[in-house]
Design a protein around this nucleic acid. Structure first.
Lengths: 189, 189
DNA sequence: AAAAACAACTAACAATCGTTAGTTTTGTAA
DNA sequence: TTACAAAACTAACGATTGTTAGTTGTTTTT
């Protein structure tokens, strides 16, 4: 029943290649070469190139959806919720920087699952907005343009994988320690 | 002598398509269709697909390089320099969101000009680091992990085009008004 | 030992890729 | 009107694309 092992190896290797060069620029022969097999052999394990992309991206998106669902209903302050969202992004980025790259850069190449993905992304952003608005209502958050606060935080969180995976980049420890403050409190004295 | 008109139309249209689907996923026939001509006709104006990409990206990168060169030598406070960097990103994003998208997402498909691009990007980031360090030395900036401050600001600034180009997204006025504070002062009270 | 499942292979397909060659049309200046 | 340049066209090229069909070898299960 453990027929997923080889399939997972293929998907995992594909994610690495997609991160580097993007879905469209990676051919099935590139992927096969990286696994030391022939392109046709891939089809003993997966149904299509599209299925690989879909598996990677939808898996990540659902992880974020589930994480947000947890957080939004917790009986804690807005500041606490925002910190948990930041931690969610850090955790998922550390777990799979390649998946995060695909999620960010290749979602538009989804076909069948594209509407489902868009829906999840919109829901996620809307939940984020609600939390920010609650913060303003409860006087925890400054009353500025909410779209700018949302975009500013999400941009940073979504591209975490870029900096996490490069040498001399940021590491997990300092991320969890300093990123919440950087995002919430700013950088000037 | 005004033979650049048609060429610029092609490059401009290409940038729009690249922003939507990425360099690799856009074919010369796609580009030609969008201009209501045949693919072969493109080659009366440009030398290669790669040349189009290169023109777009190197142009943007040089604009940032020049902007940073201006800013770093101005006799103003760190906070003022950071504000000017933020404005530089806003201005260039408004001027060409498509170019920003290519710069961010398709740089790895550069061939001949890739080393030149990498060099410019590294210099830009290093200049940014120097400014932040000056700010710490002069007690203007909190003493936290500098890579995290750098990455946090740059991530937001580099993906500005995503939010600027979508309906109900952020607009130029509120950007210039609220983004500097959001990045520098944070969002909590 | 036989059977079944798994995972690789070779060979090839139709479609599409960026690009070239050579030709025709279009607009402008002489 | 002629001459010329700009910008389009048709046709095709060799390479590469994702994928299928059918086969062979290798493990695992019975």
């Amino acid at each position: 029943m453990n027929n997923t092992t080889r399939k997972n190896e293929i998907i995992s290797k594909a994610a690495k290649l997609f991160k580097k060069r993007g879905y469209s620029a990676v051919t099935m022969r590139d992927l096969a070469d990286a696994l030391n097999i022939k392109a046709a052999s891939l089809y003993n394990h997966i149904n299509s190139k599209q299925e690989i992309l879909s598996t990677i991206i939808i898996g990540m998106a659902e992880a974020f959806t589930n994480g947000m669902e947890q957080i939004k209903n917790e009986p804690v302050s807005t500041q606490e919720k925002l910190k948990k969202i930041i931690e969610l992004h850090i955790d998922l980025t550390i777990e799979s920087p390649e998946g995060m790259a695909c999620l960010n850069n290749d979602w538009m190449h989804l076909e069948e699952k594209l509407p489902y993905f868009i829906e999840m992304r919109e829901d996620y952003e809307e939940n984020f907005r609600v939390i920010l608005n609650q913060g303003i209502a409860q006087d925890e958050i400054v009353s500025r343009d909410i779209e700018i606060m949302l975009f500013s935080m999400l941009s940073t969180l979504r591209t975490l994988y870029v900096w996490y995976t490069k040498k001399d980049g940021v590491n997990a420890v300092s991320l969890k320690k300093d990123l919440p403050d950087a995002l919430l409190k700013g950088i000037i004295k």
